[in-house]
Design a protein around this nucleic acid. Structure first.
Length: 433
DNA sequence: TCTGGGGTCCTAGGACCC
DNA sequence: TCTGGGGTCCTAGGACCC
């Protein structure tokens, strides 16, 4: 086990007594791959990739043994196989990921209720109210790591600092399987030598733009006038990054957060767009999205459709309706209009993905009669009355609740039985509404 | 050999209103 | 013969994160 304390490196030895670094970021290491190695001991110590394969698909996660060869999440399987010939591809146990991720969050919840889960495998904690029970943040971080290892069987890295931003960077520096505590007063000496790419919000594009200014470390960024950074990255991003580089991060740990959009997308084998095909895919996506909305009593006014063309260019079309929608058929029809608007603008073309997203969300209960309130409109020629649509959705939702998600569906959805990605995987990434 | 699926936030131009 | 300034909403695109 590696425990590293920044204050040990730079100043004191009595780290376990240092208070103040009360924001923790806990992040499971190579989560999916670690679960596979936990479930199958034969995989331990070997390079493992979840998902993908030499003949298609992308790698969803790579074990540290695989990362040593340069294999990364998001990489096409064939490329990963070329980088690492001994790489073992596994299909993935998505239900187990959900179960074990939840189990880890239970461990965190035993420390404090102030937990902000930001994905299946990652959370912030504010432990300022827990130190009287469990000791200083460093001790709490160590305790979390021990308990997750003992009770769940997985390696987890923890960063502790005064702010979320710094705690997150600390956990990245701690990986794999480590703990890094940045004691108050030591932020600058910790941050300055680190690469700007560790800042939340700096990806490949902005990293290159900063490099063009001669900025490679967070220290160099902090010494650059924010006006220069804003000029290159835009006002908002530049301002935020400068603030981060100066260790100014006002964000608090938030335990409840409402989603601002809900979406679903499907990659398709490259194909010329076809009316029936497009409708079938969109019906399936609209069904997924609208069911999630209705399950939470939500609806949304803005419908956005994304189309990806051969060559990876994306095109989007959106329409804001006068009233929020959550009915499957309405969403399907609006999406179809939008999709063809994008496709026709690009024609002739081949498409490789279709996606639907609904935003401007509102509570459905307060905006009932969604469809009857819509004026007669060209978007739904000959459409069924809204009440009928709501009734159909309600009975289908009820049947699915009792008999399972595949028990009933709109015709195109039933006919399309070839989902490339299992629903369990999709559910892992869904945010609470 | 051909690139997943779920999200967040920002920008810029135009429409529209007062 | 020539028309301001500010605010809000909508749309399309893009960067980023897990």
């Amino acid at each position: 086990m590696r425990e590293r304390y920044i204050e040990q490196v730079f100043e004191y030895g009595g780290v376990m007594s240092v208070p103040g670094a009360t924001i923790l970021h806990a992040d499971l290491d190579a989560f999916y791959a670690s679960v596979e190695q936990l479930l199958d001991p034969a995989l331990r110590g070997r390079p493992v990739a979840v998902g993908g394969g030499p003949n298609g698909g992308v790698v969803l996660a790579a074990s540290y043994e695989a990362k040593a060869y340069g294999v990364q999440g998001g990489m096409p399987g064939w490329r990963a196989a070329r980088l690492c010939p001994e790489l073992v591809f596994v299909r993935g146990h998505f239900r187990e990921y959900q179960r074990l991720g939840d189990a880890v969050m239970d461990v965190l919840a035993d420390v404090t209720p102030e937990v902000e889960r930001i994905s299946i495998d990652e959370a912030f904690l504010d432990v300022s109210g827990a130190t009287h029970l469990f000791g200083p943040p460093a001790a709490i971080g160590a305790r979390i790591r021990e308990q997750v290892r003992a009770e769940v069987g997985l390696p987890i890295s923890v960063g502790a600092a005064r702010t979320k931003h710094l705690a997150k960077i600390a956990s990245q520096v701690a990986k794999p399987d480590g703990l890094v505590v940045v004691a108050p007063g030591h932020e600058r000496v910790f941050l300055d030598p680190l690469p700007v790419g560790l800042i939340w919000g700096v990806g490949p594009v902005n990293e290159q733009r900063l490099a063009d200014l001669g900025i490679r470390t967070i220290g160099e960024l902090a010494r650059t006038p924010s006006s220069a950074v804003e000029h290159v990255l835009g006002l908002a991003v530049g301002h935020k990054l400068s603030a981060m580089a100066h260790d100014e991060d006002p964000r608090r740990v938030v335990t409840t957060r409402h989603a601002r959009s809900v979406g679903a997308q499907s990659a398709l084998s490259r194909r010329a767009p076809d009316r029936d095909d497009v409708r079938a895919v969109l019906a399936h996506l609209a069904d997924r999205v609208s069911r999630r909305l209705r399950a939470k009593g939500r609806a949304g006014r803005t419908v956005t459709v994304a189309v990806r063309l051969a060559g990876m260019q994306r095109s989007t079309r959106s329409r804001t309706l006068s009233v929020p929608v959550a009915a499957t058929l309405t969403l399907t029809e609006v999406s179809e209009q939008l999709a063809w608007s994008a496709i026709e603008a690009a024609a002739p073309c081949e498409i490789t993905l279709l996606g639907i997203s609904v935003s401007q969300l509102a509570d459905q209960r307060s905006v009932q009669l969604e469809l009857d309130l819509e004026p007669p409109d060209p978007w739904r020629p000959g459409s069924a009355p809204g009440a009928a649509r709501s009734a159909v959705d309600a009975s289908m939702d009820a049947i699915r609740t009792r008999f399972g998600g595949d028990a009933v569906g709109y015709l195109p959805v039933v006919l399309r039985g070839d989902g490339a990605v299992p629903d369990e995987f999709r559910e892992l990434a869904e945010h609470d509404l």
